[in-house]
Design a protein around this nucleic acid. Structure first.
Lengths: 224, 224
DNA sequence: CTTCAACAATCAGGATATTCATAGGAAAGT
DNA sequence: ACTTTCCTATGAATATCCTGATTGTTGAAG
């Protein structure tokens, strides 16, 4: 699950990222309306945490644009206590939930979970491809009741490819979404290939995986 | 998509090229105003990344010249934080967007995508010709639900011809846009003809391709 | 109408580049 | 300290690309 955090206070942003990363989310930080909109346009996020008071405009505009684009992203708005009047306004615009600062991180976690589930539909806990069942919550994969032991990276890769099924995912995208930061990783390495191979090997024991394609020169794609 | 990177710091340039190449762009590097202008004049680029502090003059002059030439190139200016006052000046001159160093590569990617889209006017990720569907993002081509397996070069050639349909595209243009650098490739070769043939062969299996013309002495053209 | 020269199409193999496969050591977790 | 997971390094396998020779086509000149 990918979260876009729109928050100009660096301290809070770092805190959120820290907490949510540990909860298994992949986080991206945007500090301005502009960068938030661009991010939302280019990449696909499951949810956005949106602070209203941004340096280059109101978060409401971001919310409006996002909803106009009809993306399936869940939006949780974060307000300071003084801005409570916005509450009505915001819900009308299509925010999925509200939090007033200060808030407990566990509270945020709970709402995030609920909201994502609601938006994605109840199937969000479980993805299915060709008989393989992916349980997102507890990092479990199984094929017809037979559990398959995947490492975290393998799971993350599998999950991301399945979430984006029928689209080619480049190695760069995988590094971004599974590792979070591209720069930390040496570029001319084949570590993704290795993980993909190990993943394939484990899946292949249970059933044919011809739907797990390699697109030469581009990346990988899972077809359903 | 072709990007001209105008940046005198070799390290940064290499980093940019590395990242953008992996994102599917074809990159060319110019380290000075002079070479930048020359490049922009000779070849056609979809976007330019322009650093302002260049050894032989200000990047603004490059920007001015480029805009004077009325090319459809998107320009993203890169400034150091101290040069922020230039911002107004630059936007007036016709830069499409700004980035202040240091910036995240993904941020750059997002803006580049947005800017190119705006300039070119195509939010298109699907092209259609005579029943053939080209999905640009996913590197997929199909004819009436039947997928067609193309290699990357074949795909690139097909895509470029369709993007420029009803126009004759020379072999030189194709080498520039598909291979990026003309000089690396020996000129008196028929490798394009070969790729075109292979492409045609694959397409022809599904339907007549009389609309895929050869224009003698000039190049190829797809008519719609 | 025929000939000729320039150009394009075709084909097969060898050269190149990318991905697959495997193993071993580093790092992280228990 | 032990186990698991992750990354690096290497060679093998394979898909793609390019070369070069050959055949086919076009259009202009005679």
């Amino acid at each position: 699950m990918n979260i876009l955090i729109v928050e100009d206070t660096k301290e809070l942003a770092v805190e959120l990222i820290d907490y949510l990363s540990k909860s298994g989310y992949i986080c991206k930080w945007a500090a301005t309306c502009e960068s938030a909109l661009e991010e939302a346009e280019v990449n696909q996020y499951d949810a956005m945490l949106l602070d209203l008071g941004l340096p280059d405009g109101s978060g409401f505009d971001v919310l409006k644009s996002v909803r106009k684009a009809k993306s399936k992203m869940a939006v949780i708005v974060i307000t300071a206590r003084g801005e409570l009047d916005d509450k009505i306004n915001g819900l009308e615009l299509g925010a999925d939930d509200y939090l007033t600062k200060p808030f407990a991180l566990t509270e945020l976690g709970a709402r995030l979970y609920a909201v994502i589930r609601r938006i994605h539909g109840f199937a969000v806990n479980e993805l299915d491809v060709h008989g393989f069942k992916i349980q997102l919550q507890d990092y479990k994969v199984s094929f017809k009741e037979n559990p398959i032991a995947l490492t975290k990276k393998e799971f993350d890769i599998f999950q991301y490819l399945v979430l984006n099924k029928n689209r080619v995912i480049t190695r760069l995208q995988l590094t971004e979404h599974v590792w979070g930061d591209v720069l930390e990783v040496s570029s001319d390495s084949n570590f993704i290939d290795v993980h993909v191979r190990n993943l394939r090997k484990k899946l292949d024991k249970h059933a044919s995986i011809e739907w797990f394609e390699t697109v030469r020169n581009v990346g990988y794609r899972i077809i359903s």
